[in-house]
Simulated scan of single mutants.
Amino acid sequence: MLPVDARLHSAAEFAAVVRTGRRAGTRRLVVHLLPTGQPKPPRAGFVVSAKVGNSVVRHRITRRLRPLVREQLLTLAPGMDLVIRALPTAADASSAELGEDLRSGLAAAVRKAGRSASAPGRSVPPAGGRS
Results as ranks from 00 to 15, higher is better:
R19M: 08
A86D: 05
S104F: 01
R63P: 03
R111I: 05
E100I: 06
V52A: 03
S104W: 09
E97T: 15
R27L: 10
M80W: 06
E97G: 07
V48P: 01
Q38S: 06
G45L: 03
T26W: 05
D101L: 09
L34E: 03
A44Y: 00
A113C: 10
S55L: 11
A107N: 11
G25R: 13
D81V: 09
R60V: 04
R103N: 05
S94M: 10
A44I: 10
V52D: 02
G45K: 00
V17K: 02
G79M: 12
H59F: 07
V47H: 00
E97R: 15
D101H: 05
E71T: 15
D101M: 10
L87K: 15
A90Q: 04
A44S: 08
A108H: 13
T89Y: 07
D81H: 14
V30K: 02
A109Y: 08
F46N: 04
L76I: 14
M80H: 14
L29E: 03
L76Q: 14
G21K: 10
K40N: 02
A107Q: 14
R19D: 12
H59V: 14
V52R: 04
R64D: 01
R66N: 01
L106S: 03
T20L: 00
G45C: 01
G53W: 04
T26N: 07
S55Q: 12
T89S: 15
K40F: 03
P42E: 08
V17S: 02
T36C: 02
T89I: 10
D81G: 05
A109R: 03
V18I: 15
R111K: 12
R63C: 07
A108S: 15
L106E: 01
E100Y: 04
R85K: 15
L65T: 00
K51F: 00
H59N: 14
R63L: 05
L73I: 08
T20W: 03
L34G: 00
P35C: 02
L98Y: 04
A44F: 07
P67F: 14
A93D: 11
R22H: 12
L65A: 02
L29A: 03
R111G: 00
R43I: 01
L98S: 01
Q38D: 06
V18G: 00
R19I: 07
A77N: 13
A90I: 10
G114P: 04
R66F: 06
E71L: 14
A91F: 08
D81M: 05
K40A: 11
V47M: 03
P35H: 13
L73S: 09
V30H: 08
P78C: 12
R27K: 06
G25H: 06
P35Y: 06
P78K: 11
H32W: 11
L68D: 06
V83A: 07
L73F: 02
A93Q: 11
G114W: 00
R22L: 05
G105S: 12
A16H: 06
R28G: 04
R19F: 03
I84Y: 09
L98R: 08
A107L: 14
A107I: 14
R70G: 05
R66C: 00
L102H: 00
S55W: 06
R27M: 05
R115C: 01
G105P: 04
D81E: 13
P67R: 15
A16W: 09
S95H: 08
G25F: 04
R103L: 04
A90C: 11
R22W: 00
D92Q: 15
L98M: 12
Q38V: 14
